[in-house]
Design a protein around this nucleic acid. Structure first.
Lengths: 148, 148
DNA sequence: CTGAAATCGATAGTCGGCTAATGACTTGTC
DNA sequence: GACAAGTCATTAGCCGACTATCGATTTCAG
């Protein structure tokens, strides 16, 4: 009888493995699709912007971008006006993945929740959202007792 | 409007961070408590046994055991009868953590699900179990088309 | 206009996870 | 009994994520 922590963790693990397998079919690693998704939404963003958008630290994006640049999905270019900034631009290869990867993602989503009724799915999402919020509050709260 | 994949992933992330913080209060990293839990249940098990029990690969356990040995929580000793085997033994420090860590874990569990009614919690667990099962089937199925 | 402060990317190092390849030791078979 | 096959742990190397630090650049105050 696993408790919630174990169940959620192990579920995440297997879901993650499934997503990883799906992305690998397109030559991607898990996580890289999130970075790409941000560039599909708007090309030429900075590592910091992307990091904030996908809720990850900047070094994570930098490392990922380095690998993806080597893989020919991205190019790095410094901003003309502000030389501290680096902007990431999609290559044709990176752009070409949008359709297939988004389809793959939808397929995964659908397969995963295939065994759930509409109501079950809805309740699951709401409960997860509640837990998410609770955990976020617990994390942020104790960190800054004095607030500002 | 995040889909299930995003919601589950981000929930996992924040839950994980919370658990990490809780474990760090006892000088542990997340994951190490699982290894310890196996030894608390029965001391002197092998890396392979533990890996199977916590659903992780053997190298993961080996690395973790190396760090935990350096941290003074474990000792490594080769099996007398079968010299291929290595057995992990708790030190006093490792044994002493059982009470506090288990309490911390229960506390986390309770805090996380505090906003859920009993019914909600039950439904959440069942839905997660369904997804877990579905994902596991999807992972294992396509791998071995011919079965044996 | 100059120097301090803020911003931003890159690097180093840690942890958990994985796969693939090594190496040591048992076991099983002929 | 010897040699092949199987079983284990270990190592190496990759990926995602984090913190801490460094370096370069811009901005802002004086």
């Amino acid at each position: 009888m696993p408790d919630f922590l174990d169940l959620h963790g192990s579920t995440n693990k297997v879901v993650r493995a499934l997503a990883e397998a799906g992305m690998r079919r397109h030559g991607l690693h898990l996580g890289q699709n999130l970075l790409l998704a941000e560039l599909w939404r708007q090309d030429g963003r900075t590592p910091g912007e992307i990091a904030a958008a996908v809720n990850v630290t900047t070094p994570t994006v930098v490392k990922m971008a380095t690998r993806m640049t080597a893989a020919g999905l991205l190019t790095r270019r410094r901003d003309e006006r502000d030389n501290r900034l680096v902007r990431l631009w999609l290559t044709d290869a990176g752009r070409a993945l949008q359709g297939p990867v988004e389809a793959e993602r939808r397929s995964l989503e659908q397969q995963l929740t295939a065994d759930l009724s509409g109501a079950e799915r809805e309740q699951l999402m709401q409960a997860l959202a509640k837990v998410h919020r609770t955990a976020t509050d617990l994390l942020g709260g104790p960190v800054e007792p004095t607030g500002h």
